[in-house]
Amino acid sequence: MSYTATNSKARNTTRKLFLWLIIGVLFLPFLPLLIWSFAQDWYFPQLVPQWTLEHWRTLLTASTKVAQGFGQSLAIALLSTGFSLLVGMPAGRALGLMDFPGKGAIKLFLLLPIIVSPLATLMGIQFMLIRLGLSGTLAGVVLVHLLPTIPYMTLVLSSVYANFDPDYEIQARSLGATSFQVLQQVTLPLIAPGVVVGALFAFLISWNEFLLTFFVGSGRVFTLPMVLFTALQGGNTGLTAAIAITSILPALVFLFFSSRALNNDAAIGGLGNV
């Protein structure tokens, strides 16, 4: 009894140590950013910078377009995530649970947008979107963001569904649940961790997308990565650092809230196929 207790305690400490190591490696590069964003000027002979909140104050003014970019980025990322969920759920179910001819070919086809560089297809896409009048609109940007997000979402959800036993649905139906109740009360709660992983992927891909937004948005759709790009060109280190930190905030928030779901085998299983 006491042996197992100490054993698990030791294992717990090791786990914690690893966790902090990972956090350290991941977050150490952000430390200079954090310092820059609060420093007046920070050049070589100085050991400690002169602290200021000026950059963060500038960030909140309209001239930097950070607020606008943040809002547009958020809207585009949420819309792309929503639409790719809408497509990815049934597609993932079909790929994960059903057997049909051409399944392998469809999986390969889904990987194409990931394999082929968007640069190769961008000219054609842009040409199409101009003709459709979608170039430079939010809808057009959401549409091109679906290009990488749908394959990721579908592949993640297909392996989530592959680990899901459809007999649960049969069981629920026979206990009196309608097909909608089955989806709401049984299927969704059981695949939720995987769905969270898929949504996280889609959100982050869309949030960080620069190239597609840059071309299709034609400068009229202004997302946070573009704000960051402009700031980088401007050469204001402090402001750039502040914008960079702002741009990773949603990902951190998302991760924090989904950490419980991620701490789950189904979620890890969802990553297996990617």
């Binding site: 036993d165 049969i170 069981q171 026979s174 206990l175 649940a177 097909s179 709660p189 059981l190």
Partner: peptide, 19 residues
């Protein structure tokens, strides 16, 4: 529909909803 048949099915695996 199965949910309106007034029958209840018990499968080999038991299949308790884990959530």
């Amino acid at each position: 529909q199965p949910e309106q048949r007034n029958m209840a099915l018990v499968l080999q695996k038991g299949l308790l909803f884990p959530h």
